[in-house]
Simulated scan of single mutants.
Amino acid sequence: MIFYLLAALVIIFLIGYFIFKKPFIKHSPDLGQQEKYRLLLEQHVHFYQQLKPEDQQRFVLKVEEFLQNTRIEGVGLELEDLDCVLIAASALIPIFGFKEWKYPQLSNVILYPDTFNNDFKFEGGNREIAGLVGSGFMNGQMILSRAALRKGFSASAGKENTAVHEFVHLLDKEDGATDGLPEHLLPDGFSRPWLKLVHEEIRKIENGKSDIDPYAMTNEAEFFAVAAEYFFEKPEKLKQKHPQLYEMLSRIFMQEPAD
């Protein structure tokens, strides 16, 4: 009897939770909301600033769509509009060349104040993780550090953008494996040349003959994400120093940010 009573209470609790919980930003199209997004993008997102007016409008609409369909939660902090817009921009930058692309494996993004450890704690020592695409029981979730998120869109970011890096991992994962070989994005016959180029570039990093972040040497998946950061943050520099890599990434992402 007690078992059935407890089961009934659990069911009532779950029904109440799902009825009353509110995802962040869930509303009908709102021109005032769009204008708020536009202002934040103009102030903080260089990628947006470089777009043509018609593409800027499409970007704003995509930001609104992303925020309507993705839950963003703050843990240990109070979420601000800027946080949500930067997360949405990070998601859209790698896929802006694909008009209909979404992230079917992503249900929510969790924002921590700062870096965290393998136990998902953001206080104490040994906190070296700035972003993570969840797997296993965390599948469908992404964790980001607010400090790293905002730094990625600051003037001091250089070639780095942690949030873009993590969304590239998620994009890589869409073919079933986070392996640095986005087969669903590569044109036919380009998988082998891409891997050959990746290994050549990794050898250059190992020999101190490349300005690509050494973290790219970790494996092919990290190389892809690190190179994508460089591609979107400093495209002119990448095109000048690594023309073959730039050309291949422009084919993968269907974008020419240097132009």
Results as ranks from 00 to 15, higher is better:
L186A: 10
N161A: 05
V60S: 06
S135R: 14
F116S: 06
H199K: 15
F120G: 04
L92E: 03
I72M: 11
R58S: 10
D172S: 01
R58V: 12
Q255M: 11
I110F: 10
T162C: 05
A147M: 12
I202M: 14
S107E: 05
I129F: 03
F231L: 01
I72Q: 12
D83N: 13
V60E: 06
D55S: 13
E42Q: 15
V109S: 01
K52D: 10
E123A: 09
F223Y: 13
P182L: 01
L67H: 01
I72N: 12
E183R: 09
Y230M: 07
Y37L: 01
M142K: 03
A177M: 07
I87E: 05
M217G: 02
K209T: 08
E64D: 15
Y48W: 13
L77Y: 08
P53M: 14
A177K: 14
S90L: 13
S107P: 00
N117C: 00
A148Q: 04
L186Y: 08
Y37T: 00
I252K: 05
N118M: 02
D114W: 04
P94W: 03
D211Q: 15
W194I: 00
F137A: 12
P182Q: 07
F190A: 07
Y103D: 02
Y48M: 14
A258S: 11
L181F: 00
F223K: 06
G134W: 01
K26C: 11
